[in-house]
């Protein structure tokens, strides 16, 4: 039995997000809007050994199947992530995350003078560009530190 199976047990039904870059699991939950209050069983493994990534995080959400559009936004912080849909302990679907065209309501704009930081009733919206994201309102480009601007 491998080490991570010992730490995070199998789930009957739900979604397993695997191969998340080490240290990003809580950001994954934040982006998905899961904070435990929904009543789903949530298991998180952080910095477990991985052949592919060295160290990886793994997130298991019971009784909830995440749609492709819900998980695609994870590609910004976890481009290597794999999404496994589990039914009755079996993986019935396995997908990679793909980069979405835009991301709404997930990130805060790093430009303090952007109208989205001015107490307006508006969700932030970023276009996904070659190597980052770009604010639809003020055009500011965010590249390396996307995870620092998760605001959900």
């Amino acid at each position: 039995m491998s080490e991570h199976e010992l730490r995070v047990s199998k789930i009957r039904d739900g979604t397993v997000i695997d191969h998340v870059e080490g240290g990003q699991a809580l950001n994954v939950l934040a982006i998905l809007g899961i904070d435990g209050s929904e009543g789903f069983g949530v298991s998180v493994g952080m910095n477990v050994p991985s052949d592919r990534l060295g160290r990886k995080d793994i997130v298991k959400v019971e009784e909830r199947e995440l749609s492709q559009s819900e998980v695609d936004v994870l590609s910004l912080i976890a481009p290597e992530a794999t999404i496994n849909i589990v039914r009755d302990f079996e993986v019935v679907e396995k997908n990679r995350v793909t980069r979405p065209d835009s991301v709404t309501g997930v990130l805060s704009c790093p430009n303090r003078n952007c109208i989205t930081n001015a107490d307006e009733p508006v969700d932030t919206r970023f276009d996904v560009v070659a190597d980052g994201v770009r604010c639809d309102y003020c055009s500011t480009i965010l590249r390396a530190d996307i995870a620092d601007h998760i605001d959900v």
């Binding site: 003078n113 109208i115 639809d136 309102y137």
Partner: peptide
């Protein structure tokens, strides 16, 4: 005219 970037888009 507004002091915040993106105001006209909004």
């Amino acid at each position: 005219r507004h002091p915040s970037e993106g105001a006209a888009t909004l």
